[in-house]
Design a protein around this nucleic acid. Structure first.
Length: 368
DNA sequence: TAATCGTGGGC
DNA sequence: TGCCCAAGATT
């Protein structure tokens, strides 16, 4: 029995009857129309968990090949827990949001130590794992363990905002909390696994962000936004700032067939990834001096040879202008450390690089 | 609360 | 071409 009507949540008025109808239509539609995705062919909580983490802010088509390779390489919690971190990061290369990979491995290690290798099946325990927030906890619990908890992602926010004509800003955390209560109220008892996925599937394939396919929607006759012709105006989202420009100077130091690469700090942007030594440009001095300053810090004397390439790359919040120069080391070469390696140009592919630097590697391989 | 944290696809 | 955005979490 439901403790509380969504009517009391101040976000939408929904009767039990309407909720039941939505559930029936959605479940029927889902059974008929659901896509055949690889992680829907397993009940292994670990594999489902991996898929949910990869799918965070990432398209299904992008994730599929990554998930296949990742599960192939790390088929169990134990395999992932005992793998070198470098290997995990390499498997994640190109997916973005690399802290997801680091958190996932940390979480899996915790599962092995604290929960005997079994993914916990309570909201409190699974939510305490690093990288497992409200959505991922709900998704894994409902899909893998059939627990009746909501899993509210961007799709669900959009579907519910339209279905109930909710005009509050979905970017606000307080509003999301309300959506979770609403989503929970809608779950047909015992059917959270299919219902949560149905809600997401509808958002991904029918109730899409722009020009929703309302004629194909099983909920059209129940949709308050559609009734008002408001479907394209919802959901309401706050606007985001444009990316901040950052100018970087990058030194590609070659000694024979080897190149100097450095590892980024384990916190912050592109944490733990390898790159060619780079430094935010100090506009008050010359490029030459910026490069000298960069390699002073690394303990490597160099001589600047020529300009190599300019690479632009835009992140969600930063726009990189990367000015790359070829440099010649003045002996002796700095010794290798944990964060600094001399690597054969043809072996750079063994290291995980951000996309901005893979562009440089391509140019380098084309040249050598 | 508002920032931070990536990337590739679609229009 | 530039911009929006996609199965979010953390601080």
């Amino acid at each position: 029995m439901k403790k509380r009507l969504a009517a009391n949540t101040k976000i939408a008025d929904v009767s039990y009857q309407e909720a039941a109808l939505i559930g029936q239509r959605l479940l029927t539609w889902y059974e008929e129309k659901k896509r055949d995705l690889p992680w829907r062919r397993t009940r292994d909580p670990y594999k489902i968990w991996v898929s949910e983490v990869m799918l965070q802010q990432t398209r299904v088509e992008t994730v599929i090949p990554y998930w296949e390779r990742f599960i192939d390489k790390f088929p169990t919690i134990q395999a992932l827990a005992h793998a070198p971190e470098e290997e995990v990061l390499k498997a994640w290369e190109g997916l973005g949001y690399y802290s997801r990979a680091r958190n996932l491995q940390a979480a899996v290690r915790e599962v092995e130590e604290r929960y005997g290798g079994q993914v916990p099946d309570t909201l409190e325990e699974i939510s305490s794992l690093p990288g497992v927030g409200s959505y991922t906890a709900g998704a894994v619990l409902s899909i893998a363990y059939d627990v009746d908890v909501p899993a509210v992602d961007g799709n669900v926010l959009r579907v519910l905002a339209r279905l109930f004509l909710i005009e509050q800003d979905i970017m606000k955390q307080r509003v999301r909390k309300r959506f979770e209560e609403l989503a929970e109220f809608l779950i047909p008892p015992g059917r959270a696994a299919s219902f949560n996925q149905a809600l997401m599937e509808l958002g991904a394939t029918v109730c899409i962000p722009k020009v929703p396919r309302c004629p194909q929607c099983p909920l059209q006759s129940l949709c308050r936004a559609y009734a008002e012709g408001m479907q394209e105006e919802l959901p309401v989202k706050g606007k985001k700032k444009p990316p901040r420009p950052v100018d970087l100077v990058t030194g590609i130091v070659r000694s024979g067939d080897r190149v100097l690469i450095v590892k980024r700090p384990l916190q912050g942007l592109l944490a733990g990834m390898w790159e060619f030594p780079s430094l935010e440009i100090n506009e008050r001095v010359t490029i030459e001096e910026n490069l000298q300053s960069l390699f002073d810090r690394l303990g490597q004397r160099i001589e600047v040879e020529t300009f190599f390439a300019k690479v632009e790359h835009t992140f969600s919040h930063i726009h990189w202008n990367l000015h790359a120069y070829l440099c010649k080391p003045i002996l002796p070469l700095v010794p290798e450390t944990e964060e600094m390696r001399w690597v054969n140009v043809y072996e750079l592919h063994q290291y995980a690089f951000p996309v901005a630097h893979t562009k440089l590697i391509q140019a380098l391989n084309g040249m050598v």
